[in-house]
């Protein structure tokens, strides 16, 4: 039997993953590794992966056979910034959750986008805090019940891809776990670009999100997620827009810093 294409990038000795059956995290792992495989990488040696704390953060650590930095809740982008500037030759990728990247870590997200820091950030947005039991997150849709919004969420959610686009990223996109082909091609696009690249994947957490809204079957939850999204280009107040939200061609932070250093040292 031919080995699955992704196995060579994974620490096979610790598979299967600990994620709940039907969780969207596996789809994102698959998409990322398919993109890497399509681009012809034999292994992950040119990469460095950074994550925060949460279910999404476990995608890379310990499963990716690569250098991985599993950091503090909310801070992966800040850790990744230091790592990237110390090792600009490495392709630094952050994979983490919505609570991690946009709740506790929201400040780092917008500042990294503003700086156009050379990072590829994939946010697995399962619309709640999965690991801690399904609390409301900054991306939970209005009126949805979670363990900390038992009467329905009264707060409007962030639209992450638009937020990051507005903050200055070179690439910002949104898909759902249903859009596997599109996620793969956007990751490939992201891996070929410099600067800050952000891909939000709306994902299903059947255990802590679906169950609380009365949709516990993963395929039904994916359908529901699709129903709150739209592929139409015009901004909709009700629905989350899918696709590439912005693409820019500004130089990334590393190349700007490099020219500053050359200027200071009189080499420019």
């Amino acid at each position: 039997m031919k080995e699955h294409f992704a196995i060579k990038y994974l620490r096979r000795e610790i598979l299967p993953t600990v994620f709940c059956p039907g969780c969207g995290n596996g789809i994102v792992i698959n998409c990322f590794l398919k993109a890497v495989s399509d681009l012809g990488y034999e292994d992950l040696s040119g990469f460095a992966f950074v994550s925060g704390i949460g279910c999404a953060s476990w995608c890379i650590s310990p499963y990716f056979k690569a250098d991985t930095l599993h950091t503090l809740h909310g801070r992966p982008i800040a850790f990744a910034t230091g790592l990237k500037l110390a090792r600009p030759d490495l392709q630094v990728v952050v994979i983490s959750g919505d609570g991690d990247l946009a709740g506790i870590g929201g400040n780092h997200l917008i500042h990294a986008a503003r700086r156009n820091m050379d990072l590829l950030v994939i946010c697995i947005n399962n619309l709640n805090y999965g690991m801690t039991g399904g609390q409301v997150s900054p991306t939970t849709p209005e009126n949805v019940t979670t363990t900390t919004s038992p009467y329905g969420n009264i707060e409007p959610p962030f639209r992450l891809a638009e937020l990051v686009a507005a903050a200055g990223a070179n690439l910002s996109a949104r898909w759902t776990t249903y859009h596997v082909g599109q996620i793969i091609s956007t990751i490939k696009k992201g891996l070929k670009k410099e600067g800050f690249r952000f891909i939000e994947v709306i994902s299903q957490c059947p255990t802590n999100f679906g169950r609380r809204i009365g949709i516990d079957k993963p395929p039904d939850l994916v359908k529901w997620i699709r129903s709150i999204c739209t592929v139409k280009k015009e901004n909709s107040n009700e629905k989350l827009r899918l696709g590439i939200i912005c693409e820019r061609y500004r130089p990334g932070y590393v190349s700007v810093l490099k020219s500053l250093m050359e200027r200071v040292r009189g080499e420019g």
Binding site: V50, L69, T71, L72, G74, R75, A78, F79, A80, T81, G82, L83, K84, L85, A86, R87, L90, N107, H108, H111, L257
Partner: peptide
């Protein structure tokens, strides 16, 4: 490399990240 971060949480995080970069 010098970078002024957005807060001290980020500053210490970047320092640790850089240290794992071997610097």
């Amino acid at each position: 490399v010098f970078i002024q971060m957005e807060d001290e949480l980020a500053a210490i995080a970047a320092v640790i990240g850089a240290s794992w970069g071997g610097v």
